[in-house]
Amino acid sequence: MTTTPHHAHRGASHRYRALRDFVRSTDDALPGKLEIAKGGIVHDLLSPNGRHELTASLLRKRLERVMPEEVVAHTGTPDVEDEYEGIMRRPDVMVITLADMEVPAGFDPRTLIAAIEVVSRSHPDNDRVGKMGDYPLMGVPVYAIFDPRTGSGAVLSDIHSTPDGPRYAVREDFVYGEDVTIGGWTISTSGLPRYQDDGAERDES
C-alpha cells in the first residue's frame, strides 16, 4: 500500500482551492458551465438547451412523487465537491435528504443518494466518460445517465476498488419508455424528450 505524503496533498489541496476560486469567480461571467474534474477544469461552452432542462425537470418531478418527504431531487447549486480528490461537480439532479443539504458550502458527495446527469449535446464525454470516473472516486453511490441523443441511459452502482481506482461494478442499461430504478425508487422514462425531436408531443407527467 502506498500513501501520499502530507505535503504533497497540501499542495494538491492548494491547487484545488485556487481552481475552485477561479471557477466560482467566473461562473456567471462565462457561457456554459464550469466544473473541476480530476484532470482539471472542464468547460461546457454551451448553456443547456430546453430539452436538456426539460428532462432534468421531469426527472425531478417524477422522483419526488415516489420519494419520502425528507428526500428531494434537487437541481441547481451548490456544487458537490471533494477537496481531497480535487473535484467539484454540479449534477443536473441530486437525490439527497433535506438534512444533508444543511451545509455552509458545497454538498458532501458521500451524502448524495444518487447523482443524475442529462448528457450534454455539446460535450457528451463529460457525462459519459469524465463523470463516470469522478463520481465513484468521490464516493457518489449511484450515478444515473440519461442521453437524449440516443433515447437511452444507464444506472451505475456498487463502487468497488480496481487497479485504476474506485469504479462502479454494476451497470443497468435502459431505453426510453422503460421503467428505471434510481436509489431504490422506480420512475417511468416514457415521454422524455429527444434532442432530434422537433416539437413532437411529449408526456410531461
Score class of each variant (00 low, 15 high):
H123A: 15
G199T: 01
Y176D: 03
T181F: 03
A105L: 12
P109R: 10
G40W: 10
L30F: 12
T186D: 00
S205D: 15
T97D: 01
V42Q: 11
A29P: 01
G199I: 03
V93D: 07
H6M: 02
P109Y: 00
M101L: 11
S190Y: 01
M94R: 09
T4N: 07
S25K: 10
V119K: 06
G151C: 07
L34H: 12
M67Y: 11
P109L: 08
D125W: 13
P163D: 09
L137Q: 12
E102G: 08
D108R: 09
A169N: 08
A8S: 06
L156N: 15
D134W: 13
T150M: 08
K33I: 02
R17N: 11
V95Q: 01
H9E: 14
G50A: 11
A200V: 14
D27P: 00
S205C: 01
G139H: 01
F174Q: 13
G106F: 11
M1L: 10
I187D: 11
E85F: 14
R65S: 08
T26G: 00
R110Y: 04
E69F: 13
R51Q: 07
D100K: 13
E204Y: 10
H160F: 06
V180I: 14
K33E: 10
A73Q: 05
D125H: 11
L19C: 04
A73W: 03
D21A: 15
I182P: 01
V175K: 10
M138K: 04
L98I: 14
I182Q: 02
F22M: 06
V119M: 12
A73F: 03
D164W: 02
I87H: 04
D197K: 06
H6A: 12
P166E: 14
H43N: 02
L112D: 04
T189E: 08
L63S: 09
D134L: 07
L156D: 07
S190E: 15
S120Q: 09
V71F: 04
A12K: 13
S13I: 12
G191D: 09
V118H: 09
P91R: 09
M132C: 10
V42C: 02
R90A: 12
S205V: 05
A154G: 00
E204M: 12
G106E: 15
V155H: 09
K33W: 02
P124E: 08
N49F: 06
V155E: 05
T77H: 04
P68K: 12
V42Y: 00
M138Y: 05
G165Y: 04
A115F: 06
K33D: 01
L192G: 05
L19M: 14
V155M: 09
T77D: 05
G11D: 13
D21H: 10
V180N: 06
L98K: 15
